[in-house]
């Protein structure tokens, strides 16, 4: 998860923007409380979206003012701790940890050093988070294992490789026993995972070619990729997400979720396909004078 899932700020109402920021800050605080402060370095927009999806629709939005965990002299409006935020916090840490491990395995000794350093710093947080959600921890390990196996054998199918990451993300929403909520949410997360995996593959196309690494888009469409074909399948995944999202009720959080799905994702997709994403990626969506 690399920050591909973000809202288009200028299309948000102020109150929805405030809600988004409160969820972001609330998640940050939750991560710090449950997993230690190093884990908050890895907070990103994707995990905030996960927290929004996991919050039950009927849960009211009741923000509170608490101290910021990054700048303790500031007080910020944030969502108070809730089971959904706690779950999202634990899952974020577990996912970040396994992605770091994955990177260490892929890279050589010297190139893998930064990731190795980060994983040492995140170790304690990961162990705490994994204790909180052992099932998700096991699923992530298994899926990423399957993915590495497919990558080793140079799998030419984008569906099969994306499927592992999609099922991994699908597992982020544990079943509640209500099929009216579980089935659409699983479908939504599956296609979100598929979309993120393929967008990331397209984004890394040149870099992987230079490093001689496996890239699913290159394995399927050739070293140059195929913009039209990839765009088509990505749009189709977006449509499957939309059809699923319309069957769910997110209550007060719907406007911001709608903004992310219908405006944010297509714009990021366009930026990645056009190659302008790298410059945008690092910029923040918060106003700098705030």
């Amino acid at each position: 998860m690399f920050g591909y899932v973000r809202p288009v700020r200028d299309e948000l109402k102020c109150r929805d923007f405030d809600l988004y920021r409160a969820a972001y800050c609330g998640l940050c605080r939750c991560m710090k409380k449950r997993c230690g402060w190093t884990s908050t370095w890895f907070l990103n927009y994707d995990f905030t979206f996960l927290a929004l999806l996991l919050t039950p629709g009927e849960e009211p939005y009741t923000p509170c003012r608490k101290r910021c965990s990054v700048k303790p002299f500031l007080k910020k409006t944030m969502c108070p701790a809730s089971p959904a935020l706690e779950l999202a916090a634990d899952e974020s840490v577990v996912l970040t940890w396994w992605q770091l491990r994955d990177k260490i395995q892929d890279e050589g000794f010297w190139k893998g050093l930064p990731a190795r350093g980060l994983s040492v710093l995140l170790g304690r947080s990961y162990r705490k988070a994994a204790r909180h959600c052992p099932d998700f921890d096991r699923t992530v390990r298994e899926r990423l294992g399957e993915l590495s196996a497919l990558e080793r054998e140079n799998c030419p199918s984008i569906d099969r490789t994306a499927d592992t990451f999609a099922r991994l993300l699908q597992a982020a929403a544990p079943a509640t026993g209500d099929p009216l909520r579980d089935r659409p949410l699983e479908e939504l997360l599956y296609h979100l995972g598929r979309w993120i995996y393929l967008i990331d593959a397209q984004d890394d196309l040149e870099e992987d070619a230079q490093a001689g690494r496996y890239n699913p888009v290159a394995a399927r469409f050739g070293p140059q990729g195929n913009r039209e074909a990839l765009e088509l399948t990505l749009n189709h995944s977006l449509n499957r997400m939309y059809s699923a999202a319309q069957l769910l009720s997110f209550g007060r959080r719907w406007p911001v979720i709608e903004n992310i799905l219908y405006l944010g994702l297509p714009l990021v997709q366009r930026a990645v396909l056009e190659g302008s994403w790298k410059q945008i990626q690092k910029q923040t969506i918060w106003r700098q004078n705030q």
């Binding site: 749009n235 977006l238 219908y262 405006l263 297509p266």
Partner: peptide, 15 residues
């Protein structure tokens, strides 16, 4: 590329 309801009808998903 499939079909789904889009609330921002006029923008057509910004295509």
């Amino acid at each position: 590329g499939g079909q789904a309801y889009r609330p921002y009808a006029s923008a057509g998903g910004m295509d």
